[in-house]
Design a protein around this nucleic acid. Structure first.
Lengths: 359, 359
DNA sequence: TGGGCGAATGTAAGCGCTTACATTTTCTTT
DNA sequence: AAAGAAAATGTAAGCGCTTACATTCGCCCA
């Protein structure tokens, strides 16, 4: 007679295991198979391709899975199947709402597509980013979402060798080797700078993040220069103040700028966090915004509408960007289609912090 | 004569593999071992316990690793070693600065300890949280960081069976089975409510998040009731308005509250996001804050100091909480020590939105 | 009723690593 | 210089799954 283990037999195994190792026993596929009296292949199929298994068998298996509290071992699964249904994303920081919001959208969309998102943050440090990329790849990420194009070519070679598809976001440049889903930082900032200059401002300064290894920051500054050039002002006249990505740093930068002579009549900030810091600092110095000084931001995060006056800024469709980047990446991973770059539109949001050049 | 493969041999293998599969070849431990002429065990030791290997051997191995661009396969590694050096964290949302900041600290501290953090967000949905917990465990998370104590007991049983240590944060209750690193939500809110009542307010309302499966929200409301009780007011007199966790929802809630009769003279909000929405909405309705209506928050996020007037709120030491939770969890994972609960202090930050009861 | 065919299930070979144990090499010690 | 201990390295058995291929089952039709 064929012997099929009962739930009690398995329980006994568990007891034994308990004696041998102090750890409680975690059931495996084989345990489920043994309890039901089928092969591990059948159990595996029940879980992954239920259509291939007879209804009766499937039900018995699922019941056993439930009874034993079985949960598949991800490492074993991906080692055997060579895919993980996992996408990795590395963002510069979680502390800025801008990335948080976009990445939340990525996560939701990937969940809808049946994939999981792993998020790491690099604290704006290229060396840490490389480390995170290697970690994520070693963890079997099927694809990677990276912010901005610029990074060491060695790391792109590594990714190519490992056959890991990459999609770049928060930037757009079809000329780059990797597809990107984003917006044109330079053109967007140029539009903002033109708007500023249309109000008569000529003494313009910019507060931005470190440009060295940040193509987005650099392109935004370049956008301001483009606008100056277009208006017949020497782009080299632009005062650029690089600083950390915090409200305090933005405030300190503004204080320095207005202390110089002649101080700027308009300060174009590389993002909203810096801009909010600048607005608060200006007000603390007794300057009226925008009567005495105009200030603009970039991103359009919640903060922008909370301060008084509300911040004039560039609106970026983060959620849409996240959703599209997720879809694009998934296409690349499943090799459904060639991924193209997608350009999203930004929009000027003219609010209270931008005014006419003081008469 | 013993034959050792040269880099060219390996390259040839790679070429062959290339013909067989379109994918480029990803080198394995065995390739490195073959190139150097040692066993896989030695290579493994070079990478994991370099002290056990002779300097000369180690150098040759590391050179080969470099040359081949070898990167260990995480799945294989954790399948064999039964540990992942990975901690999972599930937070309600990434879109609130409060969690982002704390989790960033957790990540930094774990990095220092040699572990990686995997972050998932549940969008405040218990069913999604369960799913995320199972995913993280299946991925081999050595430990889990969860927000708040309250969840289905079945999921705690599952975690116990899987032997996954859990540390709870953003809450503190040593009476619960899992250790927690956090603060006393109830006492903190009670202190705030007492401060409000000390200014003469008696018509008090509360705007908070859904209490149903959120012990933190519930405890905060309870704290307000405690204070009322202490002042001889019937706690049942408290108007509680539950809503979503957004600025807009906070604003809408305030509008509803002031429209009722008699409207509250002070609105105690469950967190800063709701409070900021309430302040903005009140101002839009023509009410002066705090002269006509007092509003308080909880968390002390950046926003609190950006609005005018600055928000009176409860300061929570997020970064410290993150660091301590990370250490505690790592202790549990490495079984270095029994983990205890840690109580952190919160502090009232009395700023501009809380004033005397209108005469 | 038997042959043939598709559907359901089983068999077993890995996936790339770690590690207990066995073996070899090197260093002490007398 | 021999013996023994310690250090370095090798051998090989898994870890828990997936999946190509082999086998068996059930059903239909002639």
């Amino acid at each position: 007679m064929l012997h099929h283990d009962t739930a009690e037999d398995i329980a006994r195994t568990i007891m034994t295991a308990k004696d041998a190792y102090p750890a409680e026993y975690v059931p495996t596929l084989a345990d489920v198979a043994r309890l039901v009296g089928v092969s591990t292949a059948t159990v595996s199929r029940c879980l992954n391709t239920p259509g291939q298994v007879q209804k009766k068998t499937r039900e018995k298996v699922l019941k056993a899975v439930e009874e034993l509290g079985y949960s598949p071992n991800f490492s074993a699964q991906s080692l055997a199947a060579k895919r993980t249904n996992t996408i990795g994303a590395i963002i510069p920081t979680m502390e800025n709402a801008i990335f948080a919001r976009g990445i939340q959208a990525v996560q939701e969309e990937l969940g809808r597509l049946g994939a999981t998102l792993l998020v790491a943050s690099s604290a704006y440090r290229p060396d840490l980013e490389i480390e995170q990329i290697r970690t994520l790849v070693a963890r079997g990420a099927d694809g990677l979402l990276l912010i901005g194009h610029e990074r060491d070519t060695a790391i792109y070679e590594f990714l190519d060798r490992q056959q890991v598809p990459v999609c770049v976001s928060w930037a757009f440049d079809p000329a780059r080797p990797k597809p990107s889903v984003g917006f044109d930082n330079r053109a967007a900032m140029r539009a903002m700078a033109e708007e500023v200059m249309a109000r008569g401002h000529r003494r313009i300064a910019t507060i931005c993040a470190r440009q060295a290894d940040n193509d987005r920051a650099r392109e935004r500054v370049q956008g301001v220069r483009d606008a100056m050039d277009g208006a017949g002002i020497a782009p080299s006249d632009l005062t650029v103040f690089e600083t950390d990505y915090t409200i305090e740093a933005g405030g300190a930068a503004l204080a320095t700028l207005v202390a110089s002579s002649p101080g700027p009549s308009a300060v174009i900030c590389g993002n909203d966090v810096l801009a909010v810091g600048a607005v608060k600092a200006a007000q603390k110095l007794g300057l009226r915004v925008p009567e005495d000084i105009s200030i603009t931001g970039f991103d359009d995060i919640e903060l922008a509408q909370v301060i008084v006056p509300a911040l004039t800024t560039v609106h970026v469709p983060h959620r849409q960007m996240g959703v599209l980047a997720a879809r694009q990446l998934w296409k690349m991973v499943t090799r459904e289609a060639r991924a193209d770059s997608i350009l999203l539109d930004t929009e000027l949001r003219l609010r209270g912090t931008l005014g006419q050049y003081p008469r």
